[in-house]
């Protein structure tokens, strides 16, 4: 290995870290606080994973995702899920198009054909509509009729759900929850942050600061490839696997996480290392990513719920134990 080669590697790595830092700074122009959530969302993008965002209304979920799509130069579309939303409203449908040569069926693309898709209140859509998203999330393609259409790369689906109003909702089935790489929970901002939010959005009629596009679509794909290359020590990898395995035999859990969770916990750890500017996966990364990756993949027993435990506490106990 020549000296030039090693300098290049270090330089490339430093540049990548710089880009990620710039993305965070640009998002920070609009979003106040929520650093951990922003890191998790960026990590999910680097992992080419889908996100389930859960928070109370008015927390800036849509704003955050929209801002992020602008900064990383991706097409953005938003779907508001309602009980009468049909799968074809998402995927698109064939329409009759009249031309000089005659009439023909032409596929009219739905809002799913974007790089970043935000499905607001996904649990308000019927199971039939929710399942229409499955193929897009997993296979990165949609099938209408007997024809499949590939989605643009990169493709992210970010779904939100409101934890308060559960009436008239259709909770996501386990199979679909497992398709989401992370479930990110937004918490209320502290007083200083809330003061800053109020100042920003009350002093101007339409607060929209100039955002710079930091990376291109192609760069995002390269960054995703790069994320997979972040080295991890064998014992740290084994520990991540053991954390997931322990969810399957914890007495507080009705069911544990699947092997897909092991894969995604390790990839999420790699992405977090990159976001944190580290060139290797640390145990801290695995611990930090355990909750968002596992919390929607496990089911508490009735006894555990009665005792006041929640998914996060159980995961925390497991990570401390392993």
């Amino acid at each position: 290995m020549s000296l030039v080669g090693t300098v290049d590697n270090a330089e490339k790595y430093r540049k990548l870290n710089q880009k990620i830092e710039e993305i965070k700074n640009e998002i920070g122009k609009v979003i106040v606080g929520q650093d951990e959530v922003i890191n998790q969302v960026i990590a999910s993008i680097l992992c080419d994973g889908n996100i389930l965002l859960e928070s109370n209304p008015g927390m800036g979920k849509t704003k955050m995702i929209h801002t992020l799509s602008n900064v990383i130069g991706l097409n953005f579309s938003r779907i508001q899920a309602t009980p009468d939303l049909m799968p074809s409203d998402i995927t698109g449908t064939h329409i009759i198009e009249e031309s000089e040569t005659g009439t023909d069926f032409v596929f009219q693309k739905g809002p799913i054909f974007a790089n970043m898709v935000l499905v607001d209140e996904i649990n308000r859509a019927t199971p039939k509509t929710q399942s229409a998203l499955l193929e897009a999330m997993q296979e990165k393609q949609v099938t209408v009729g007997n024809q499949s259409y590939s989605l643009d790369k990169p493709f992210f689906l970010m779904a939100t759900q409101n934890p308060l109003e559960q009436e008239g909702t259709y909770p996501l089935p386990e199979a679909q929850r497992d398709r989401f790489m992370m479930k990110v929970e937004l918490d209320y901002p502290d007083t200083d942050e809330e003061r800053e939010i109020v100042n920003r959005f009350t002093n101007e009629l339409d607060y929209s600061p100039q955002l710079n596009q930091v990376v291109s679509q192609a760069s995002v794909t390269k960054m995703q490839e790069f994320t997979r290359e972040v080295p991890i020590a064998d014992d740290i990898r084994d520990r991540a696997i053991m954390i997931v395995k322990n969810t399957r035999k914890d007495h507080n859990l009705e069911y544990g996480a699947s092997p897909r969770a092991s894969i995604q916990l390790i990839i999420a750890g790699k992405a977090r290392a990159l976001v944190e500017g580290r060139n290797h996966v640390s145990n801290q990364d695995i611990n930090a990513m355990a909750k968002p990756v596992l919390r929607h993949r496990i089911g508490l027993t009735f006894k555990a719920e009665k005792e006041g435990l929640d998914s996060d506490k159980v995961i925390e106990n497991i990570t401390n134990r392993v």
Binding site: M1, G5, T6, N9, A10, K12, Y13, R14, F226, E229, V230, P231, N279, H280
Partner: peptide, 9 residues
């Protein structure tokens, strides 16, 4: 690249 960067560090 990532591994080489790690080795350099």
């Amino acid at each position: 690249i990532a591994s080489q960067a790690l080795f350099d560090e």
